[in-house]
Design a protein around this nucleic acid. Sequence first.
DNA 1: CCTTGTCCCGACCGATCGTTCGGTTACTCT
DNA 2: AGAGTAACCGAACGATCGGTCGGGACAAGG
Lengths: 194, 194
Amino acid sequence: MTTLKRDTYTPDSLLQVAVQVFNERGYDGTSMEHLAKAAGISKSSIYHHVSGKEELLRRAVNRALEGLFGILDEPQAREGRAADRLEYVVRRMVEVLIAELPYVTLLLRVRGNTGTERWALERRREFDHRVAELLKNAAAEGDVRGDVEVRLATRLVFGMINSIVEWYRPDGRTGARREVADAVVQLVLTGLRG
Amino acid sequence: MTTLKRDTYTPDSLLQVAVQVFNERGYDGTSMEHLAKAAGISKSSIYHHVSGKEELLRRAVNRALEGLFGILDEPQAREGRAADRLEYVVRRMVEVLIAELPYVTLLLRVRGNTGTERWALERRREFDHRVAELLKNAAAEGDVRGDVEVRLATRLVFGMINSIVEWYRPDGRTGARREVADAVVQLVLTGLRG
DNA sequence: CCTTGTCCCGACCGATCGTTCGGTTACTCT
DNA sequence: AGAGTAACCGAACGATCGGTCGGGACAAGG
């Protein structure tokens, strides 16, 4: 039978603890001692589950990036009018951001000091570029205003969406995610179409 | 006569170098060795000008906060219809953000590990609250839509504005600042009024 | 009973951290 | 010329960093 009980750490359950501490103290501001204390095990025990601090970061940002790139593979992001696909992607970005909140938070704070961080930054740029093309196509099809530069608008829209990680905290209310997604779509897309 | 030549460091000119390195590597990711290398002097010489690493951070975030709070004291932020004052404050926030870019960048990335960082976070919250009241008043006067929660809208607007530090880099073009400010005002305020 | 492997630990490693200290250079003022 | 001081330096401090090492506790399988 496959194991079901989880009274001991797996790489993933340890990651869950680590990412939370990373987000509270910052990656560089977090020592292995901090992680050990938060996980309730000794510092050296962490190395039984993962190869080191950087693997934890790599696993975390990878999970975030998989969630984001997954959006672009969904049918509604690939078919139809560019403006509609853009709205769908914006809405799904908010949902993924919230669903994978701690992992995306960590991704968005990466600075580029190590190889792992630079790889994360590169993949982020790639994702941004894919969404920017969507906005460019929507402009070409005449569905968004032409007096705001596409590159500038893309950055501002990303800025608004990504800022969600700075204040959103999960609560009991069902539909809170949808409410946030609705507000973003309303603010951004009416502003763009205006 | 007052000294004019600047072939040696002052606390402020050293701060200028330090803040740039802080923004590249992150505050925690920056060692005094990094700062010394960037400044072209030895590590111990830094302590001739400032008391330590944390004073550099304190000076930097203080400069950013003074710029932001200064906006609220300007006449156009204090008189007139709330919606107009809001538009003025939003526009001036973009301008201050760009004028004091490295200092505001550092302020926006503070995590709260030390006393200085927690003080910075508290003042930031105070500023956010002041602007949120402006938006609330504009809603009460019927100048912005009522179907988006004020608290939520405030956060999204701040997110868009603050995200500027993540991508704006000064160039030779005059009027680039105004262009950015115009785009933000258009996107945000037509979205809000819509 | 004995082996095997998982999970964990305290002790320790060399390196680097922010900071301090004693001292040297070079310019200013009298 | 001599005193004072601003600006700087190399060497070293105790503390902490990420990571290693040898081994103990314990359950599973033969």
